[in-house]
Write a protein that binds this DNA or RNA. Sequence first.
DNA 1: GTGCTTGCAAATCGTTTGCAATAGC
DNA 2: GCTATTGCAAACGATTTGCAAGCAC
Lengths: 143, 143
Amino acid sequence: MTDKTSIKEALVQYGISPSRPRLAILEYLRTHCTHPTADEIFHDLKEAVPTLSLTTVYNTLKLFAEKGLCLSLTINEKQVCYDGHTHPHGHLLCSRCGKVYDIERSEMPMEPSENYICGHRITEVHYYYKGICSKCLPDDMAS
Amino acid sequence: MTDKTSIKEALVQYGISPSRPRLAILEYLRTHCTHPTADEIFHDLKEAVPTLSLTTVYNTLKLFAEKGLCLSLTINEKQVCYDGHTHPHGHLLCSRCGKVYDIERSEMPMEPSENYICGHRITEVHYYYKGICSKCLPDDMAS
DNA sequence: GTGCTTGCAAATCGTTTGCAATAGC
DNA sequence: GCTATTGCAAACGATTTGCAAGCAC
């Protein structure tokens, strides 16, 4: 249960002033595990926040990602999607339906063994699979 | 040393007829470890293959990736880049200069432990870091 | 009223598509 | 000659940018 107060607190804590669109977008991210795109968030929030613009959604997501309030995932070639759950975890992209699933498995090393590898400084670890999701598997067999 | 003959053989082996642009693009991919974009390949090959078009580069790379002759990497938000080395390995994207480096480390599990995970069928494993590359580190410290 | 935030419209740019010209067997 | 391949120009679509209007303290 993510209540409005904690959403606001999170924004303040990350040094972001809690405007109405920002509250709405962060709440959306925290209550959906669908890895939405900017456009999906825009469409879903348009009703509740009628003045919202797609530009604001883009700008806000960019701000959140920079500040570490969300992850931006570039798994899909076409568009960036966002994940409000920032603890280290992996993903699966279904090549058939395009959905992105969270995957948490012990064999996924989501932390680098060292901060520096081959002389490069590591700041983020990304791990994902591509495949066919369980929902699409029957259709995939058929075709 | 990747000779012309083996390039041609590889194309034929993967069921692709060895046209001049295709030979040039595959040779480029095999002799460069820079993870080039379509545009970079186009610019670099334009001189040697003057009739080459950017469209053909895009189409050819797509074809190669589908047939398994190269990997398409969606690490960078802006554009897809390609890797002619298809053995399982990881990457590092430098947030400062944008270059992509190959990373091969024993702790990177580039094969899934099972073909099916959480009911989903796994076909590809992608593992990459984001960070600051060794060349950019001094500049990064300074700024 | 000052500065941050928003939202519209237009621009940008990587990528794809339609289709006619071309090349290779 | 037939078929696959190429390449131009135009379309497309996600994202960014410029800028004026709005809001909050």
